[in-house]
Structures are given as C-alpha cells and as structure tokens.
Amino acid sequence: MTDSGLRVVGVSHGYAVRGQRLEVLHDVSLSVAPGELVALAGPSGSGKSTVCHLAAGFESPDAGTVALDGDACPSVADWARIASVPQQHGLLAGLSVADNIALPAYRAGLDAALLDERLAGLAEALDLGAFTRRAVTETSLGEQQRTAVARALVLSPRLVVLDEPTGHQDDDHVEQVIGVLVGAARAGSGVLVASHDERVWAVADRVVRLEDGRVVTDAAT
C-alpha cells in the first residue's frame, strides 16, 4: 500500500439490525494513491457502499483504520480533502444547479474568478450548461447525479469517493462522467468509485472486487 492517499487497513464493520448484529465488512484492506482511479466491484450487498461511507468519513470503522495521507478521515466535511457523491446525491433542494456545484467553493472561500472558470468547465464537460440556473429540483435524476459529480470535483480534492455515479446516465452521459473522473485522477486526485458498470472498470487503474464483505481480488486493469 502507498504511504500517501487513502489507506483502509484491516477494516471490519457492521450494523445493528432488528436487535441483531449484521457484519458487513471483514478485514478489508485497500488503497487509493494520489492520481489513481480505483473501482470497487462486486454484487449488491457485498459492502461497496459501506467502504464508500467509511472512506468519505461518514462513519468510523468498528475495527481497523481508515486514513488519508496518514490522518484519520475527517468526520466534518472538508471538501478540499475528501469529496463524495452518495447514491442519494445529497443536493440542496432550495438551490440552483450552479449553487449546488459551487457550495463547497463558497465555504472554502475560493476566488470568484477561479470558481467561475471551474463551474464553466465542469458544466461543459458534464452537459449541464443549459441547466445551471435551474432549481435542482426541476432537473432529471441524471442531471442531478451529474450535478453531484461536478460539486465533488469543484475544489479538486485530494480524494473523491463516488457510489454508483453512472447509475442514472444514458450511454453518452456515462462517457462524460467517466471522462471527468479520469481527468480528476490525471490532475492528481485519488478517485474511488463503487460501480457495477464495466465501462468504469475498464478505465480504472485497479479494480478491487468485494464478495460477502471481503476483498477477493485487487488487480491492475
């Protein structure tokens, strides 16, 4: 494993379900280096989303460690370090598409000219230019998903964690999403993508496959 980037080491994790303990992950280890795109593959229920939650800092593991550049992943959102695209997207209904994308940049105090440049570039790359002033609730699920991807990339974070980011896209828009993720990795971000889509696996530097909460393969493509 790399010394920098994301390191998940010996992680086990579970949840209480109707008074019983459901163990989801069992001694999972994986890494994502800066500039690397790693795909998480595996059947539904294999633990991909739980790995994403832990990597993004939404939860802390029951056992093992999850760290970014040697430090524990923050529980308070720091989108310049770790940005995420959850399956439910997490957009703010009262804001426009543009304001949802820009929200991490507003909080970080990003220079207005640089923000405008990044917004324009992401909107063009993800086919959102015609919708940026529209309320996000007035857009399709596919457009909302691409908005969430743009929001995750607006600060060029150290790590981007995405859970099924192509699930609501047609073929052309799948290629656009994949293109911006490859671009983010080439620009130096670590990118962790949970996906059933073989097109995502094909562009990944490595594919980590989970089954029953365990890593069964971790191989370069």
Rank of each mutant, 00 (worst) to 15 (best):
G45F: 03
P86I: 08
L92A: 12
G94D: 11
E117Q: 14
D99A: 13
V28I: 02
A77Y: 12
G94Q: 13
A56P: 10
T50M: 08
S60K: 09
G90Y: 04
W79D: 15
A120R: 14
V24N: 05
V32Y: 01
S96I: 04
S44K: 04
S96P: 02
Q88T: 06
A120V: 12
A83F: 03
G35C: 06
R107E: 15
V66E: 00
A16M: 15
C52V: 09
Q88I: 07
D69I: 13
A56C: 11
P43H: 11
Y106R: 13
R21L: 14
R118K: 09
G35I: 06
K48G: 05
P104A: 06
V24C: 08
G64T: 05
R18S: 13
A16S: 15
R18H: 03
G45I: 02
G109W: 00
L122G: 01
S84K: 03
A39G: 05
S49E: 04
L103N: 04
D69N: 12
R81V: 07
A113D: 15
G109C: 10
L115D: 07
D111H: 02
G45C: 03
A83I: 07
E36M: 05
L115A: 05
P86Y: 06
I82K: 00
F58V: 13
L68R: 02
G35R: 04
G121L: 14
A120M: 12
A112I: 12
A72W: 02
L92S: 09
L22Q: 13
G70T: 10
A113P: 12
A55M: 03
S31E: 11
L122Q: 01
A72D: 10
L110C: 10
V66N: 00
G14M: 05
A108N: 05
E124T: 13
A102W: 00
I101R: 06
G90F: 04
A39S: 10
F58N: 05
V28W: 01
S46A: 11
V32A: 03
D62T: 13
L22W: 09
L122E: 01
A112K: 08
G57H: 00
S96N: 06
I82F: 01
V24Y: 05
L95K: 02
T50Q: 06
A80D: 15
G109R: 00
S49W: 00
V17Q: 13
D62P: 08
G90Q: 06
A113Y: 13
G57P: 03
C73I: 15
A102G: 04
R21V: 14
Y106M: 09
R21K: 11
L95C: 07
V76T: 15
E124A: 15
A67H: 13
D78K: 09
L110R: 01
D71M: 07
A63W: 11
G19Q: 09
I82Y: 01
T50R: 04
D62Q: 10
L119E: 02
D27K: 09
S12D: 10
E23N: 10
L114Y: 11
V85N: 00
Q20E: 14
V76A: 15
G19M: 12
D69H: 12
L115W: 06
S75M: 05
S84N: 06
S29L: 08
S31A: 15
G47V: 03
G47L: 02
